[in-house]
Design a protein around this nucleic acid. Sequence first.
DNA 1: CTGCAGATTTTGTGATCACAAAATACGGCC
DNA 2: GGCCGTATTTTGTGATCACAAAATCTGCAG
Lengths: 229, 229
Amino acid sequence: MAPLSTDSVDLDETPSATAHEMVYRILRARILEGALAPGTALTLRGVAEALGVSMTPAREAVRRLVAERALALTETGRVAVPIPGGEDLDALFTARALLEPELARRAAGRIEPEQLDRLRALDAEIGPAIERGDAGAYVSANTRFHSVLYAAAEAPALLALVESVWLQTAPSMRRVYAELGDQATDVLADFHLEALQALAEADTDALCAAIRADVLQGAALLRRTISGG
Amino acid sequence: MAPLSTDSVDLDETPSATAHEMVYRILRARILEGALAPGTALTLRGVAEALGVSMTPAREAVRRLVAERALALTETGRVAVPIPGGEDLDALFTARALLEPELARRAAGRIEPEQLDRLRALDAEIGPAIERGDAGAYVSANTRFHSVLYAAAEAPALLALVESVWLQTAPSMRRVYAELGDQATDVLADFHLEALQALAEADTDALCAAIRADVLQGAALLRRTISGG
DNA sequence: CTGCAGATTTTGTGATCACAAAATACGGCC
DNA sequence: GGCCGTATTTTGTGATCACAAAATCTGCAG
């Protein structure tokens, strides 16, 4: 139960002060940055103790993540970070490739200059994260880049679908980028820059293409890492 | 709390005998057939009493459905069937139009003759349901048709995404078909028949087209009903 | 009849407990 | 040393309770 702490969770946007929501946010953030490796086992009492709450809110937060497929139950009711197979990951990236360009399309018309600045700032975080080999920071910043962009789409139902997919792929992607190490700079084309340029020029089609390429690059990278070992 | 009963829920495929799972299945089935109108309020104690369990499993089942966006929380923590706006429904049908052809594509190659027979049987249920004006039975059979087809795709991650969308659209669609009444026979083209034929001929592209047309027809119908009143 | 202030009831939240099943640890046996 | 059966511990499940906030009801004043 080591990798659970309250720091680095965005407590600013915490409208609800309920315990189970706090537990949910912390666990979710840990999963999204890949801090919980695939296969990691969790226990309700462990989560509860680590976060200083009783079993009830821990249970609710964990079960919520199970419903979002971020966690999975064994046949006997135990909780663990799922280990998606190659086919599962293929399906998940297919979903991303279908849904994210649509979200980008909807975001293109509504994005505010302020949010565009935030995107630039997030993109600027990514390079350094790669260079210092911090896979967690990389995956995290990468996710937030997409998240901020899609928030502008004002399509919460679509965003929820995509976020469920992210939760399922993040633990595996963390491993991929960790194994990549310093080769990352060579292998990864920066489609985020293309996306930013397309946004600045209000070129919706180019934006969608950049996002799609970004997703497909992730899928290809994953496939390579799985088959290559 | 009237429209909650244990009958007509498929208890055959009930591997888990936990109380919260039973509650979840019953509520889910009710939502999918549109038995709970948009805006319907639920209470944890009400659900618990109606189904003969304590608050704990009722809470877990309800919160699970909230996580799947089938139910929604008000700002004060109350639970209700959400009332999606026109833009929400548009986004949800866009997601269906993107994801379901992909599921159909994957199902095309793997479907067994036995499952094809089940599809035909389900399709045969739909006509009579329309004629006797049973919107609930129609929506339910329709959903099961798609569900059985996509189950053959063996892509649980994709199926889960689509099922979450169904849960969000079903209450609204029930209203649409109910208002349609006996006009349904005239308005609704039977794309399921086209899909079945494409499956029999192993024509994957035709199957995807039929599924896509089926989804888009639903979207158009919904738009018409919303604007028309 | 309408509007509002207070009392009452309803409702979600979280803690605690008992229980059964599963996982683990232990010890003896071959 | 390896293996299996038993005892212990761990763990999820579900029930019950206390509490606070929200919603509803009640009755009075205008």
